[in-house]
Amino acid sequence: MAFLKILFDNLREGPATEAFPFGEAATPDAYRGKVTFDETNCVGCNMCEHVCAGGAIRFSEKEDGLHFLIWHNTCISCGLCAHYCPTKAIKLSNDWHLSHLQEEKYEQVDHAVVPYRHCTSCGERLQPGGPMLHQLAFKGTNPRSQRLMNMCPDCRRKASYSGEAL
């Protein structure tokens, strides 16, 4: 008689089969899908490239900044990049609609440029650094830290020593 209970449950709760592809599929928020990259917070530490298990991430230094490249077709969604990124500039979204036709195989790429900064005092080229790095390094912001942040180490030392940055 156990089947009567199953029959009753089925009538009450509806089919167990998910509607997809004729409707939406439930996706947990924490599902590890397509990688997203936020160039405003990346500090160019290259850690994500270093730990990337699938070799999906490439950084190259160009005139205008660091060029970030990811090929989603070799990303294994392991989440190592997001785990080790100090500023959480790289994350895994829960987007899993990645299937595509063969013609689009090499278009499954995201590219971004992380611009270099320049020392506000002498103009020397600096590694990128966004507001998130500022938060992390100084545990909050104030005008002094903001000023020092955008200087090269030499100018920062001089400014601190002379007291002009106080």
């Binding site: 997809f20 592809p21 077709n73 294994i76 392991c78 990645l98 299937s99 063969q102």
Partner: peptide, 26 residues
């Protein structure tokens, strides 16, 4: 695809069942 003509790619390691169904639909 060095040896066979591929038509549809379903990336993921592994792709979730819904993603496979999406690829099969294509």
């Amino acid at each position: 695809d060095r040896y066979l003509p591929v038509d549809v790619n379903v990336p993921g390691c592994p792709p979730r069942p819904q993603a496979i169904i999406e690829g099969i639909a294509k």
